[in-house]
Simulated assay, not measured.
Amino acid sequence: MVSRSSAEAEYRRMGQGVCELLWLRRLLRDLGFRPQKPMDLNCENKAAIAIAHNPIQHDRTKHVEVDRHFVKEKLDAGIISFPFISFENQLVDVLMKAVSTTIFLDSLDKLGMRDIFALT
């Protein structure tokens, strides 16, 4: 697939993320857990979040109509929510791209990873 904008690419990934959250929700329900609040799908792209919340058709969404309707339906039903998360708090960045030493060490600490070779 070729996306024409980063918002479109992010929105397509949000659609896939919603599918995964629905699967996890059903799995939890089968195990006896009933989620009482919407499941969060963190997103750092404000344009993609705006597309999810805005019912007006955007020019950027002409290639993602199915995803747009699917995500909007789950958002309106209260099954999911899209809190904005800034790039400094994206823990996955340490696994995907080069980050500064400070962000790297902070992310490792948040992930609970420790250097087993460090002197104690």
Rank of each mutant, 00 (worst) to 15 (best):
E10H: 01
I116D: 02
A77P: 02
I85Y: 00
G78M: 10
K110N: 07
E44W: 03
R114H: 05
E10F: 00
N54V: 12
I80L: 11
G78Q: 10
R26D: 15
L105C: 10
C43G: 04
F104I: 02
I79L: 14
S5M: 11
R114N: 07
A7Q: 06
P35N: 10
E73W: 06
E73N: 13
P55V: 14
T101L: 09
T61P: 00
V64T: 10
H63W: 02
T61K: 02
F117G: 01
V18F: 04
A9D: 04
D59G: 13
P83R: 12
K110L: 09
K72W: 03
L108S: 04
P83C: 11
C19F: 01
I103L: 14
A52G: 03
K62G: 04
E10N: 05
L75S: 04
A50R: 08
S100I: 12
V92T: 15
K72V: 01
R34N: 13
C19Y: 00
S100R: 12
L95W: 06
I56G: 01
E20K: 13
L21N: 03
N45Y: 02
A77W: 05
C19S: 04
A7P: 00
I56K: 15
P55F: 10
H69E: 10
A52C: 04
R34Q: 14
L105E: 14
K110E: 12
V66D: 02
D30K: 13
I80N: 02
F70V: 09
E88H: 14
R60F: 03
D76F: 07
K110V: 08
V64R: 01
A50Q: 07
G32D: 14
K110A: 14
C43M: 08
V94F: 07
T120S: 10
F87K: 09
L24P: 00
L21I: 15
L91R: 11
I56N: 11
F70Q: 06
H58S: 15
R26K: 08
L91H: 06
R12L: 08
C43Y: 04
K74Y: 02
C43P: 00
M96N: 11
D40L: 09
D109V: 07
A7I: 09
S81G: 04
L95C: 15
P83T: 13
R4T: 07
I49W: 00
